[in-house]
Design a protein around this nucleic acid. Structure first.
Length: 602
RNA sequence: GCACCCAUAGCUCAGCUGGAUAGAGCGCUGCCCUCCGAAGGCAGAGGCCUCAGGUUCGAAUCCUGAUGGGUGCGCCA
């Protein structure tokens, strides 16, 4: 698992930083560390121990207790003591904590903790009081992070591949935001290269078509229908005046015009998915400002630019390979495989050069952490980009690059090849219109970003239990349904009222399982944020929904477990408080994923 | 040839930054609707965590190598 290096340092340094909300695992860990400190001051343990690896987590087997800590095993070696000995002493101290009913040493030195049932009531009340803020963390407090994602070329509509990057980047940004980071969502528009010339020429042909002439969509131009309205728009703006003019008279203007149109379309695509960028940065805007020259000058001042000749790649040689001296960035000094050219043979910049300048602007804007979300096909670009950021920031800013694996399309179980020419090009709009934004987003987050994703239209469109998003939304809808029924009975089921309900004691095992899962949420958020892995939220929600469904179903056999206790407002309030707490967490998690918490399934 | 990513149940995949008896969904077997929504639940079968070494109290997790797959490899972005 990868982590954000910067965040790791901050995590350890800020271990005490947190919000006022309850984070049960965090709180108990504080108690464990306090107990350890006490043992140090009593001379039982040596001073100066590093507690960083001391964890308080759910035990693998619920029979072991409510929580477990590995403190004794982690500290055994540095403290030069036997794990069991440390564990015995630590367990004794922990048993004195009011929230802890028992602390038992088990296995190689685990300490299993059993918590007072009152703790679970406290968690439930806390969720109801904090509402959407429950689980919010101070993990990233004071860290400004820039998440650059999508950055699709402004030459056409977004396709399914972009969709995954968009969903992942957006969910990651939301997750980091929830974990306390100061997040900026950013899109880099590649509007400076040759591909926008191609776009302009393609649009020109559609313009001719709009004027009643036969378009000449030559090989190498973009044939897509999406340029037809662009051609019409050009005609509306310029009339027929461009028809007789040579390319050099209209190229620059149409480049800008068409790019604008494409970006409008892309913004629309993103909006249909529920993605909203904070900043759009233009590559072209860097040209002529001296930014690119300045960035490269800076690298040159650092002795990282030189004129040189690269060795040809090993293995099969490109057909047009010839030895050539070029302007190179010494990226090998930062772990890259070869130095990278920044100028083309025609004197223009390579794609890399403005990208260096662009990343420099991010550094200068004061971000502490940069995250780029790339498609896996850009994996070869990772090392040089990291090298550039490391060089320009003199190692002060970390660039973390998350690669998103490509999406494998299926239709009715058959692999489905996308091809612009064959017209089997599946756009983001196609997907969203057919499957809906919620389903698309959730499905794309049910896989780790670096694992390939199968996207089968038949399965994704199917509104069944095979579709995890329905399972999770269904759990939320069920709670809403119960609330509606309770309110029909004339009972006050506001969160404020529920937070004061007398909660069940003792708890039924099915209820306990649910409330324990709810208690894990803040910890899950921090784990997911530290790993930059929003898919963990999706998996957590599935588990949480599963616990709710399980409890619900128990109500079929055990009437006392039903959320609605006919004619008994007090008893119902207690049950519904728990259900509502679950719904609050589902809603919170779905918000991070950008999925609507359905109030009813229709 | 080199770099990056991946390899866990029949299939698709999780596995909480090294912990206890490795989990879920689908599929398979068997149960559960005069009962707050069965779009669901419960139980069961199913594993050499690709292979071989290494690190240590302890490895699916970290390191090295092998094998198999994906992606990329100067003047495209």
């Amino acid at each position: 698992m990868r982590t954000i290096d910067v965040a790791r340092g901050l995590w350890q340094g800020r271990a005490q930083a947190r919000t006022n909300d309850m984070n049960l695992f965090f709180d108990i860990r504080v108690a464990v560390i306090a107990a350890l400190d006490e043992m140090v001051s009593q001379g039982v343990l040596p001073a100066g121990l590093d507690y960083a690896n001391v964890a308080v987590e759910p035990p693998r087997d619920p029979l072991h207790g409510d929580m477990a800590t590995n403190a004794a095993m982690v500290l055994a070696k540095p403290a030069k003591a036997k794990p069991r000995d440390i564990a015995e002493g630590l367990a004794e101290k922990l048993a004195g904590d009011g929230r802890i009913v028992s602390a038992d040493v088990a296995g190689p030195g685990f300490i299993n903790l059993r918590l007072d049932p009152g703790v679970w009531a406290e968690v439930t009340r806390d969720v109801l009081k904090s509402g959407a803020d429950y689980g919010r963390s101070a993990l990233g407090q004071g860290v400004r992070v820039n998440v650059e994602f999508v950055s699709a070329n402004p030459t056409g509509p977004m396709h399914v591949g972009h969709t995954r990057g968009a969903v992942f980047g957006d969910a990651l940004a939301s997750l980091l935001d929830f974990a306390g980071y100061d997040v900026t969502r950013e899109y880099y528009i590649n509007d400076g290269g040759a591909q926008v010339d191609v776009l302009a020429r393609s649009a020109y042909e559609r313009y001719r078509e709009a004027c009643g002439l036969e378009p000449a969509i030559r090989e190498g131009l973009y044939p897509g229908d999406y340029l037809i309205p662009v051609g019409a728009a050009i005609k509306a703006k310029y009339g027929r005046e461009l028809l007789e003019k040579p390319e050099e008279d209209w190229l620059a203007e149409l480049r800008e015009f068409a790019t604008e149109q494409m970006m409008d379309m892309i913004r629309g695509d993103l909006a249909s998915l529920g993605v909203k960028m904070d900043v759009f940065s233009s590559e072209k805007a860097l040209y002529g400002t001296g930014r690119i020259e300045a960035a490269l000058q800076r690298l040159e001042d650092l002795g990282l630019i030189y004129e040189g000749v690269l060795d040809p790649p090993k293995g099969k040689l490109p057909e047009d390979w010839e030895e050539r001296e070029q302007t190179l960035f010494r990226s090998t000094q930062f772990g890259d495989d070869v130095d990278r050219p920044v100028k083309k043979s025609d004197g223009g910049w390579t794609y890399f050069a403005p990208d260096i300048a662009y990343h420099w602007t991010k550094i200068e804007r004061g971000f502490d952490l940069l995250i780029d979300v790339f498609g896996a096909d850009h994996g070869g670009y990772v090392k040089r980009m990291k090298a550039a950021v490391s060089a320009l920031s003199e190692g002060k800013v970390t660039l973390d690059i998350k690669l998103v694996q490509l999406v494998k399309l299926f239709k009715n179980g058959e692999p489905f090849k996308m091809s612009k020419r064959a017209g089997t090009f599946v756009t983001l709009r196609d997907v969203v219109e057919q499957a809906g934004a919620d389903v698309t987003r959730f499905h794309m987050l049910t896989r780790k970003n670096d694992a390939p994703l199968d996207f089968d239209f038949a399965k994704v469109l199917e509104q069944s239990k095979d579709n995890p998003v329905f399972y999770v939304q269904y759990a939320h809808a069920r709670v809403c349904s119960v609330l509606r029924k309770a309110q029909e009975a004339g009972w006050d089921m506001s969160d404020a009222r529920l937070a004061q309900a007398e909660l069940p004691a003792p708890w039924h095992p099915a209820e306990l399982e649910l409330v324990k899962k709810i208690a894990e949420y803040p910890r899950l958020i921090e784990i997911a944020a530290r790993a930059s892995e929003p898919h963990r939220v999706a998996f957590y929600l599935f588990d949480l929904a599963s616990d709710l469904h399980a409890l619900w179903n128990r109500g079929n056999d055990v009437p006392e477990l039903r959320f609605l206790q006919e004619g008994d407002e007090a008893a119902s309030s207690a049950k519904i408080a728990l259900a509502r707490a679950c719904a609050v967490v589902i809603s919170s998690g779905l918000a991070i994923l950008g999925v609507t918490p359905a109030e009813e399934m229709r």
